[in-house]
Write a protein that binds this DNA or RNA. Sequence first.
DNA 1: ATAAGTGCAAATCATTTGCAATGTC
DNA 2: GACATTGCAAATGATTTGCACTTAT
Lengths: 158, 158
Amino acid sequence: MQSEARKKAKRKFIDFLEEKNLRITDQRRIIIDTVFDTEEHFTADQLLEWARQKDRSVSRATVYRTLPLLTESHLVHEMDFGKPYKFYDPNYSDHPNHNHLICEDCEKIVEFDSEKIDSIENQIGQKLGFTVKSQKLQLSATCDKLKKNGVCEKKACD
Amino acid sequence: MQSEARKKAKRKFIDFLEEKNLRITDQRRIIIDTVFDTEEHFTADQLLEWARQKDRSVSRATVYRTLPLLTESHLVHEMDFGKPYKFYDPNYSDHPNHNHLICEDCEKIVEFDSEKIDSIENQIGQKLGFTVKSQKLQLSATCDKLKKNGVCEKKACD
DNA sequence: ATAAGTGCAAATCATTTGCAATGTC
DNA sequence: GACATTGCAAATGATTTGCACTTAT
């Protein structure tokens, strides 16, 4: 699909590593490929699993050590939905202004843009005496389809 | 200040417990008093500390077992700011539509209302096929005062 | 009496870290 | 070769839970 954007993101991350004098190892390459070949949001655990499918040499520690680099480079966005683990979003550099809705029934995460909200946020920050660095608008919701059909798209819900 | 609202909140929580046939113990009374006598946002650990100042018989386990009851009653709001521990807000029932800004420098949490955002959120949910159950708009920001004066209100920042 | 509540200590579970070995530049 | 990076296993730290005892109703 959008392999162009993904290739660009990979290159940008490699550049980021080089600028910081960090090394491009096999494991990092595999993690990068995994991250930017999916459009889905993922957890550290999922990323580990996917990466190890490509190459067993990737360890949990390396995943956990690479994730902060990915977020620091602003190519991946870290998100907290009140669950005991974090979610990561590889689409961030494409549309940095997007927000998220998580379905309480199936944990599906849906992205949406909203510039309107962005401008309100900055107004609010100003009024309070802060400079807004980042915003997270997170909606928890229940799926309308579920109520009608008894199932979500992603998987069965109870 | 607003001891009326606080008294009401305490009573509501007692009612909540009674309706669920749960018991009103000394420890719970102390926790309730602690929670609704502050207007600050707090963590489980802070609540434990404050409660134990009033009465050493309160244990960490009881705090952790009471917190879910408080949030279930909708009198206290649980919040996640991407830190490894949760924050709780005892002002929730007063203005259920408020959102939060957290200062990255000193962890100070500031509340603000915004009905504008609420209505946008519901529109978005509808468009996507979800019924919005709850929303969290969280801004991370840096303190303007800090930049000028080199200190935040709450404590020194680096 | 009985079912709920308590403290304690042990268990969980995501994430982090120390260390000795290995790989990159 | 210097220094970053790795996997492993152990550590961390917030939260949860099993259990035997205690208490509210």
